[in-house]
Deep mutational scan, measured.
Amino acid sequence: MIVFVRFNSSHGFPVEVDSDTSIFQLKEVVAKRQGVPADQLRVIFAGKELRNDWTVQNCDLDQQSIVHIVQRPWRKGQEMNATGGDDPRNAAGGCEREPQSLTRVDLSSSVLPGDSVGLAVILHTDSRKDSPPAGSPAGRSIYNSFYVYCKGPCQRVQPGKLRVQCSTCRQATLTLTQGPSCWDDVLIPNRMSGECQSPHCPGTSAEFFFKCGAHPTSDKETSVALHLIATNSRNITCITCTDVRSPVLVFQCNSRHVICLDCFHLYCVTRLNDRQFVHDPQLGYSLPCVAGCPNSLIKELHHFRILGEEQYNRYQQYGAEECVLQMGGVLCPRPGCGAGLLPEPDQRKVTCEGGNGLGCGFAFCRECKEAYHEGECSAVFEASGTTTQAYRVDERAAEQARWEAASKETIKKTTKPCPRCHVPVEKNGGCMHMKCPQPQCRLEWCWNCGCEWNRVCMGDHWFDV
């Protein structure tokens, strides 16, 4: 396979590697080409510095992935760790964990309700045991953590790749202090920090972006993250068709209702045909949960890209028209025109101005929308079919299609509260000796007794199943 190397943020060049090629071997190839010592090179990928003893497969490097290699003399205490030698983080029983690669970060837990604080980093599902597709590297999971809308060759929703760059020099040479644990960490600028490894760059702020994971991409090709779309790892039924499908869209209502993408497309087109989208002054033209839940309008309007190009163009047109109407304007009634106009409040005669090729020149009556006339309008008909009709959803289907309910059931079956801080902690095999993952707590306690870890627990039921 081919990976592209950008040395000291210059133009990239291809390097041929195998899945079992080590990072140090990659350094040696680059060092020979650039005429520099291999031990002064640092390989940066997806916000993480890659260790010498890791392989291309370990690092989730795919065909035509772009890695950054910078030349920086080692500072005291760094060289041993980078070589894969006596790194205290690798000691058996050590409590410190390697910062998780962005290629394996899962933010789907952050669609849980606000009262489930902490689960994004504490609760991990076991539903990723799908067998890898044919042709994928051994052991590589097909679980997708992110979804994007690819405006490039795909023109559809695709699995996405999370990447990070330095907000100062805009190069992907920043190593994160810690990985993101929720969508806010990724979507809110300057929320996460790190250290830029580019020479002479003092940058410390992280800037995240997404790429389409279905095809090789260049540095400049980015895609918009659709953070309401998630892999259906909890096997929730769709609120409309009641099938279990994946991926799904999880509405931001209190129940976190789930809808499959085909039904979401149908829901949007139906509402669009009836012009029953909601115009929100802050958000724009949007839709609420299909069950009509309060405070559930979709905030990231790129989710409506699921409509496809033709329907999305209609959505944008109707949204612009609705904006004009909300501002007190009118639409030209001549067939084939429909231009938005903003006449004076007491102006009865409205002319669709033909300047700049935008208007048709038609003069019409503001009251009856017919060709302009003197005197009273002959008839004014009330528009028919403008009443909002509820999208029919079966109550039982709505009850079963809740992301929140599956989460709470998982928590109930696989977790116990920490005796000190009461945060839910998952036990997935292993011994009875637990350690609270909350940095402010870190209590060592017994899963069996529910009390602080002691010699009695150690001698009596340390390794009970």
Score class of each variant (00 low, 15 high):
residue 227 H to T: 15
residue 317 Q to R: 15
residue 362 F to K: 05
residue 281 P to H: 08
residue 370 E to Y: 04
residue 119 L to M: 14
residue 337 C to V: 03
residue 234 R to Y: 07
residue 278 V to G: 04
residue 221 E to N: 07
residue 458 M to C: 15
residue 135 G to R: 12
residue 140 R to Y: 11
residue 179 G to I: 03
residue 21 T to R: 03
residue 251 F to N: 03
residue 123 L to C: 13
residue 439 P to E: 05
residue 148 V to P: 02
residue 237 T to H: 12
residue 377 C to W: 02
residue 248 V to G: 00
residue 2 I to E: 15
residue 184 D to V: 03
residue 94 G to R: 12
residue 458 M to L: 15
residue 340 G to V: 04
residue 180 P to M: 02
residue 360 C to Q: 03
residue 126 D to Y: 05
residue 236 I to L: 07
residue 239 I to K: 00
residue 85 G to E: 12
residue 454 N to A: 06
residue 298 I to W: 01
residue 105 V to I: 10
residue 318 Y to T: 02
residue 360 C to R: 03
residue 414 T to E: 14
residue 245 R to Q: 07
residue 129 K to Q: 12
residue 176 L to H: 02
residue 464 D to K: 15
residue 222 T to R: 10
residue 281 P to D: 12
residue 382 E to R: 13
residue 161 K to R: 15
residue 338 G to T: 08
residue 280 D to N: 09
residue 258 V to Y: 01
residue 230 A to R: 14
residue 305 R to G: 07
residue 132 P to L: 10
residue 255 S to Y: 09
residue 215 H to C: 11
residue 364 F to Q: 03
residue 307 L to D: 00
residue 138 A to T: 13
residue 252 Q to S: 12
residue 443 L to T: 13
residue 164 V to L: 10
residue 115 D to S: 06
residue 288 P to M: 07
residue 142 I to Q: 14
residue 301 L to Y: 07
residue 139 G to H: 11
residue 56 V to M: 13
residue 387 T to G: 10
residue 94 G to M: 13
residue 196 C to W: 01
residue 224 V to G: 08
residue 52 N to K: 02
residue 216 P to I: 09
residue 176 L to W: 02
residue 179 G to L: 04
residue 214 A to P: 02
residue 366 R to C: 07
residue 455 R to V: 15
residue 95 C to W: 13
residue 227 H to D: 13
residue 338 G to A: 08
residue 199 P to F: 06
residue 178 Q to I: 08
residue 193 S to E: 12
residue 228 L to C: 08
residue 445 W to L: 03
residue 383 A to I: 13
residue 120 A to L: 04
residue 246 S to K: 04
residue 103 T to F: 07
residue 394 D to H: 06
residue 461 H to R: 01
residue 300 E to I: 03
residue 8 N to I: 01
residue 402 R to D: 02
residue 211 K to E: 15
residue 241 C to Q: 01
residue 120 A to N: 14
residue 331 L to R: 04
residue 137 P to I: 13
residue 54 W to E: 11
residue 156 R to H: 08
residue 177 T to P: 12
residue 323 C to N: 15
residue 124 H to D: 15
residue 171 Q to W: 04
residue 258 V to T: 08
residue 424 P to D: 12
residue 396 R to T: 11
residue 12 G to Y: 05
residue 31 A to G: 10
residue 206 A to N: 00
residue 139 G to I: 13
residue 215 H to G: 02
residue 217 T to Q: 11
residue 266 L to Q: 05
residue 256 R to A: 08
residue 110 S to Q: 12
residue 292 G to R: 06
residue 328 G to I: 02
residue 390 A to E: 15
residue 136 S to K: 12
residue 298 I to H: 02
residue 87 D to A: 10
residue 265 H to D: 08
residue 377 C to S: 02
residue 283 L to I: 15
residue 425 V to P: 02
residue 193 S to T: 13
residue 251 F to I: 01
residue 41 L to A: 00
residue 209 F to A: 13
residue 409 E to T: 09
residue 399 E to K: 09
residue 76 K to F: 14
residue 24 F to R: 10
residue 58 N to F: 11
residue 60 D to A: 10
residue 307 L to Q: 01
residue 366 R to Q: 08
residue 411 I to D: 15
residue 302 H to I: 08
residue 434 M to G: 03
residue 50 L to M: 05
residue 16 E to K: 10
residue 52 N to S: 07
residue 279 H to V: 06
residue 409 E to L: 08
residue 462 W to C: 15
residue 221 E to D: 11
residue 389 Q to R: 12
residue 40 Q to K: 05
residue 80 M to A: 13
residue 117 V to E: 15
residue 152 G to E: 13
residue 171 Q to L: 06
residue 342 L to V: 10
residue 186 V to K: 01
residue 113 P to A: 11
residue 284 G to M: 02
residue 13 F to Y: 09
residue 72 R to E: 13
residue 9 S to M: 04
residue 116 S to D: 15
residue 253 C to K: 01
residue 337 C to R: 03
residue 239 I to N: 01
residue 277 F to S: 00
residue 257 H to A: 00
residue 68 H to G: 00
residue 234 R to V: 04
residue 464 D to Q: 15
residue 77 G to W: 13
residue 435 K to R: 06
residue 343 P to N: 06
residue 298 I to K: 00
residue 92 A to H: 13
residue 303 H to Y: 06
residue 309 E to V: 08
residue 155 Q to M: 12
residue 185 D to Y: 01
residue 419 P to A: 04
residue 363 A to P: 06
residue 360 C to S: 03
residue 421 C to W: 00
residue 53 D to C: 06
residue 289 C to F: 01
residue 399 E to I: 12
residue 374 E to S: 07
residue 289 C to V: 01
residue 271 R to A: 14
residue 426 E to V: 10
residue 463 F to I: 04
residue 423 V to Q: 13
residue 286 S to N: 00
residue 283 L to M: 10
residue 284 G to A: 03
residue 309 E to H: 14
residue 99 P to L: 12
residue 428 N to T: 14
residue 237 T to E: 14
residue 92 A to I: 13
residue 448 N to P: 04
residue 346 D to R: 13
residue 374 E to Q: 08
residue 427 K to P: 14
residue 312 Y to H: 12
residue 412 K to C: 11
residue 160 G to C: 02
residue 11 H to G: 03
residue 157 V to C: 06
residue 100 Q to C: 09
residue 422 H to R: 06
residue 362 F to P: 03
residue 147 Y to F: 12
residue 172 A to I: 05
residue 338 G to R: 04
residue 42 R to P: 01
residue 279 H to M: 09
residue 249 L to I: 12
residue 199 P to D: 12
residue 427 K to E: 06
residue 265 H to S: 07
residue 413 K to E: 14
residue 258 V to Q: 01
residue 82 A to P: 14
residue 128 R to Q: 14
residue 69 I to P: 00
residue 437 P to A: 07
residue 124 H to K: 14
residue 13 F to M: 07
residue 227 H to W: 10
residue 368 C to F: 02
residue 157 V to P: 06
residue 156 R to V: 06
residue 421 C to L: 01
residue 182 C to Q: 08
residue 461 H to A: 00
residue 425 V to E: 11
residue 380 V to T: 08
residue 213 G to T: 09
residue 247 P to L: 05
residue 276 Q to D: 09
residue 450 G to R: 02
residue 384 S to F: 10
residue 305 R to L: 08
residue 157 V to S: 03
residue 352 C to T: 02
residue 101 S to P: 12
residue 433 H to S: 04
residue 378 S to K: 14
residue 129 K to W: 08
residue 167 S to V: 07
residue 150 C to N: 02
residue 276 Q to F: 06
residue 66 I to D: 03
residue 400 Q to Y: 11
residue 307 L to Y: 01
residue 420 R to K: 15
residue 54 W to F: 06
residue 132 P to M: 11
residue 391 Y to P: 07
residue 75 R to W: 13
residue 23 I to V: 08
residue 336 G to W: 08
residue 70 V to A: 02
residue 144 N to M: 04
residue 199 P to W: 05
residue 396 R to P: 11
residue 109 S to K: 13
residue 314 R to E: 02
residue 33 R to W: 04
residue 194 G to N: 01
residue 286 S to D: 00
residue 116 S to P: 12
residue 366 R to W: 05
residue 385 G to H: 07
residue 40 Q to T: 12
residue 6 R to G: 03
residue 70 V to H: 03
residue 336 G to F: 10
residue 193 S to L: 11
residue 198 S to A: 10
residue 249 L to H: 02
residue 79 E to T: 13
residue 325 L to W: 04
residue 386 T to F: 12
residue 227 H to V: 09
residue 126 D to V: 06
residue 172 A to C: 10
residue 46 A to M: 14
residue 217 T to F: 08
residue 198 S to N: 14
residue 39 D to I: 03
residue 311 Q to W: 04
residue 342 L to H: 09
residue 186 V to M: 02
residue 230 A to C: 11
residue 413 K to Y: 14
residue 199 P to S: 08
residue 208 F to P: 02
residue 246 S to V: 02
residue 340 G to M: 07
residue 143 Y to W: 08
residue 398 A to C: 11
residue 371 A to C: 08
residue 347 Q to W: 06
residue 93 G to N: 12
residue 435 K to Y: 15
residue 294 P to G: 13
residue 214 A to F: 06
residue 83 T to Q: 14
residue 18 D to Q: 11
residue 310 E to D: 11
residue 40 Q to C: 07
residue 316 Q to H: 10
residue 218 S to Y: 08
residue 71 Q to D: 07
residue 40 Q to L: 06
residue 204 T to H: 06
residue 84 G to A: 13
residue 241 C to S: 01
residue 246 S to Y: 03
residue 215 H to F: 01
residue 451 C to A: 15
residue 139 G to W: 10
residue 301 L to G: 07
residue 181 S to R: 12
residue 417 P to M: 10
residue 55 T to P: 04
residue 49 E to N: 01
residue 9 S to R: 03
residue 82 A to G: 07
residue 290 V to F: 05
residue 4 F to V: 05
residue 92 A to N: 13
residue 207 E to L: 06
residue 208 F to A: 05
residue 324 V to N: 05
residue 410 T to F: 08
residue 357 G to N: 14
residue 378 S to L: 08
residue 54 W to G: 04
residue 48 K to S: 04
residue 429 G to N: 15
residue 136 S to W: 10
residue 407 S to D: 11
residue 96 E to M: 12
residue 201 C to M: 01
residue 114 G to S: 13
residue 351 T to F: 10
residue 462 W to D: 01
residue 360 C to A: 03
residue 366 R to M: 07
residue 127 S to D: 14
residue 3 V to Q: 03
residue 191 R to N: 07
residue 325 L to M: 07
residue 427 K to A: 10
residue 52 N to D: 14
residue 28 E to M: 06
residue 318 Y to H: 02
residue 253 C to P: 00
residue 444 E to V: 04
residue 317 Q to N: 14
residue 414 T to P: 13
residue 285 Y to K: 00
residue 357 G to V: 14
residue 80 M to S: 11
residue 166 C to N: 01
residue 12 G to R: 05
residue 20 D to V: 04
residue 406 A to C: 09
residue 7 F to W: 05
residue 230 A to K: 15
residue 77 G to V: 12
residue 398 A to S: 12
residue 122 I to N: 15
residue 313 N to S: 10
residue 340 G to H: 05
residue 349 K to M: 12
